[in-house]
Nucleic acid binder design. Structure first.
Lengths: 259, 259
DNA sequence: ACCAATTTGTCCGTATGTATG
DNA sequence: TCATACATACGGACAAATTGG
């Protein structure tokens, strides 16, 4: 909360000069390339020239160019196809899902925080899906239900199918912002859901039954009941959690951060 | 959609060997450091040794170490204090907000997608806030209201205060997952909100009135009315948008990606 | 299928500016 | 003040992989 750095040359206070903040050359290189891509002057898919060419254009050493490239590489603005040439790229938003999830864990987010967000997001997703789901996605949900019914006694597989179910739903809702917002659920709920299936004999059947009721409501375009069942479904998760564990206010296990 | 690369040495099909995917040394360096931090063997704040030391430990060249460091630098797992030594760090989740917002814009997310997500998130936020808001945050909201009332004819300032209002609310709700999920609203709605205030004479007053009603409900711990007013408030934004613009299904302006 | 040019990955040595004690 | 340590940046070099005949 406190910002108390840079007290050394800051005393002049008023004046006509902007505070000067020197950036290392490799960062300037990265920023320059980034601007070209974000502004659209370099289109995604365009080859970005070889390192030697960039060296000539920027007038810096190749090592410096390479360090700049590494900065962008991590952010997804640069792609390498076959380990070779560099291409400009538009970062896919869910490339950040892993990083965000990991940051959540390292910042000791609680199950409660994740669960509350899940409740809001999943209900919104299912209500939107009720408005606009296509036959194609209804078919995918049916298929998921079939597989789930055959996996009632396979906790790990069923937990994966649970993730798949909600992922299909989010796609059917046709909203990429919500799709991204729910990514941490996928990454962080899984191990707990699996354990929950393993320890609570009724949990698998309840899970599949809720999914069935949701699909049923979606097929009827019944937004209200879809929402009601989703709420029950998410509530069930919490109840199951409290049944086998101490408190939902504990932080998510740090081991979940290790992929 | 088609995956047809790597047909050269792939013909063996079945076998006991894992497909081998060579990683460059600089990436191995980054991964190694990352694992130490994520696993907790290196604690946040710990100095990470000098480049020379890392060179000795990894047995690679200085340039290689530096490239690896750049990869981590962008992800926030590494911090440099005064331009000097490297420290391990826990990435703050909202350091990714800018990247995600930019990715949304570059992927041509529509206002509808953002708005639908906002509706879900803000209602959840205000309902949680109604349960647990402290006097301190109520005071901050009051202060925000006062400033807003004096800024009714300053569109830019009022738009900033609108962001502040919702940010305070999210903090009062005490849920960091929702707090992060709503970050793109801050980044991406602002220019449009400002324009909306500028072009629609009634919009500023409607905005502040809704905020007042929300604070009033929060003070009474009235979850239902807080939710109702928030819904109206978010709906108002869409109505205002449609009043001055063509369609909410258009992509968010690319220029918003340029900070 | 082979060859030559290009390009990346990696390494070495060195110079410079700056922060620390 | 001065010496040391360290990050930044540069130039040159070579091997391996890729590309394009």
């Amino acid at each position: 909360m406190s910002e108390d750095g840079a007290a050394k040359t800051d005393n002049a206070g008023r004046g006509v000069f902007e505070p000067i903040t020197p950036s290392p050359a490799y960062k300037l290189v990265a920023d320059a390339i980034e601007r070209q891509i974000v502004s659209g002057r370099v289109r995604p898919g365009d080859a970005l020239g070889t390192e030697a060419e960039l060296v000539k254009q920027f007038g810096v050493n190749r090592s410096t160019v390479r360090e700049g490239i590494r900065l962008l590489e991590q952010g997804g603005l640069i792609r390498r196809d076959s380990n070779r040439k560099l291409y400009a790229a538009v970062p896919n938003y869910d490339r950040f899902a892993d990083d965000v999830s990991r940051a959540f864990v390292l910042n000791e987010i609680t199950f409660r925080e994740l669960w509350e967000a899940t409740m809001a997001i999943e209900i919104a997703v299912v209500e939107l899906a009720a408005e606009r789901i296509s036959e194609e996605f209804l078919g995918k949900l049916d298929e998921n239900l079939n597989k789930s019914r055959s996996a009632l006694n396979k906790p790990s597989k069923l937990a994966l199918l649970d993730i798949e179910f909600h992922t299909i739903l989010a796609k059917a809702a046709d909203n990429r912002v919500l799709q991204f917002a729910r990514e941490p659920e996928n990454k962080l709920f899984f191990p707990t859901t699996e354990m929950l299936f393993r320890r609570n004999a009724q949990a698998p059947q309840r899970n599949v039954s809720a999914h069935e009721a949701i699909v049923d409501a979606l097929r009827k375009r019944d937004k209200v009941n879809a929402g009601i069942w989703m709420r029950r479904h998410i509530n069930d998760w919490k109840k199951g959690f409290e049944l086998i564990n101490k408190s939902i206010d504990q932080a998510i296990d740090r081991t979940y951060a290790e992929d």
